[in-house]
Amino acid sequence: MMEARVLLEVDDLHKSFGATEVLRGITLRVRAKEVIILIGPSGSGKSTLLRCINRLEEPTRGRIRVDGVEITERGVDLNHVRRHIGMVFQAFNLYPHLTALGNVTLALRKVIRMSRPEAEARGRRMLEHVGLSDKVDARPSELSGGQQQRVAIARALALEPKLMLFDEPTSALDPELVGGVLRVMRDLREEGMTMIVVTHEMSFARDAGDRVLFMDGGEILDEGPPATMFRDPAHPRTREFLRRILHGAPGGA
């Protein structure tokens, strides 16, 4: 099997908030086109890990390289780094004063300095891509949660990122709206997008994930392909967590 190039390298990453150590030495390699599923109980550091990767949080210690560029170095142009890492948030975080198209084109105009027609053409393509070509001019308040999250995905994709980070993208959605968002994410996988997904959607993890990582207490305790992880996890805490997730309320944790 051909080994794809490594896109993300995380080495011995530590993060503390005051006296609380949230990440305790995370080391991780993600290859191009890989889909990584991050699972674990709340407070285990999953979100913090994602937020360190695009430096929304400042790591206390450790190294992160994205496509060969050290992003934890002093003096690195963070705005340039972030352009290549898309992020999708649990709470969507759409800009309420802009239309769907305005949300998607803002960074194109301000960061890449595209002309308005150029940015809008790409913005429309992106919204079409997530199945919202009829909602171009809608405000976030006029959209369902699922539609808002798809706009948020289009907003991140518009910058043509090398890596997409999803922080519980479906946790805030009504159950009947989850499918549409997951469908868009599956399409992305088919197109070869590299993704790290924090999620409790175990069916998605099973059929869209290449590798499942189980985090607890700020460490990666267990990892493996979904089939192995769900059938026969090595670590007893993974087993316990999965039992709770799989037999508890759907989507909850």
Binding site: N54, L56, N79, H80, R82, R83, I85, G86, M87, F89, A91, N93, L94, Y95, L106, A107, K110, V111, A152, R155, A156, L159
Partner: peptide, 12 residues
């Protein structure tokens, strides 16, 4: 989250 969304897309 508004700040974070903006900063995550590369806005200063």
């Amino acid at each position: 989250g508004q700040w974070e969304a903006a900063r995550s897309t590369g806005l200063s």
